[in-house]
Amino acid sequence: MIEHSHSLRVLYPETDKMGTVHHSNYARYYEVARWELFRAIGIPYNEIENAGYMLPVIKMNFRFIKTIQYDELLTIKTVLKEIKGVRIWFTYKLYNSQSELVNTAETELAFVCKENWKPCPPPEFVLSAIEKAYLI
């Protein structure tokens, strides 16, 4: 299991009329956290794209526990749960400034060829980086 923590601050335009973070922002928060996990193990996302691969999200699931307000400092704990065939799974735990769990999520992505968007095995350099990170 590979785990990575990433912090970010809630911006004013991310809130809604109710004064809380709009639900659409959670997908963006988790995308940032996911790519920061990849960066931490030595794979900036642009390297994946430059090698001819894309990683579209094919499934996501959120559980909203508490609301989040403007200017809160959030911490996202991302876990690369599994990689099997063309698919890769991540889980997320989102904490507020008081270290309270406010949201959990899971995403499933698939490796596809950039040229034709057909599913394909992950590139060897991604598998190698993941394997190396598991051993650390």
Rank of each mutant, 00 (worst) to 15 (best):
L37V: 08
G42D: 03
V32F: 08
I130T: 08
L101T: 11
S99F: 10
I136W: 12
T67Q: 09
V86D: 02
H23T: 11
I68H: 06
E31I: 10
P121V: 04
W35Y: 15
I68R: 05
I130D: 06
E124S: 13
G52E: 13
P56E: 04
T67D: 03
P122F: 08
E82I: 00
Q69S: 14
G42M: 00
L55I: 12
L73S: 10
L127R: 08
E49W: 09
H22R: 01
K118H: 10
Y53W: 08
A40T: 13
T78D: 02
E100C: 02
Y45H: 11
F90Q: 04
G42I: 00
F90G: 02
H4E: 04
F62K: 01
F64P: 12
V86K: 10
N103R: 06
Q98Y: 07
K81L: 11
A51F: 04
F62H: 15
E49G: 12
Y70T: 03
A27N: 05
E3R: 14
A27G: 05
P56T: 07
A27D: 01
T75K: 15
E100P: 04
L127G: 07
E106C: 07
L73M: 14
L135M: 12
N96G: 00
D71F: 06
T75I: 07
V57R: 10
E14A: 09
A133V: 02
E3I: 14
M60A: 13
Q69G: 05
T91Y: 01
T107Q: 12
V112Y: 10
T20C: 04
H4T: 07
R63C: 10
R63V: 14
H22Y: 12
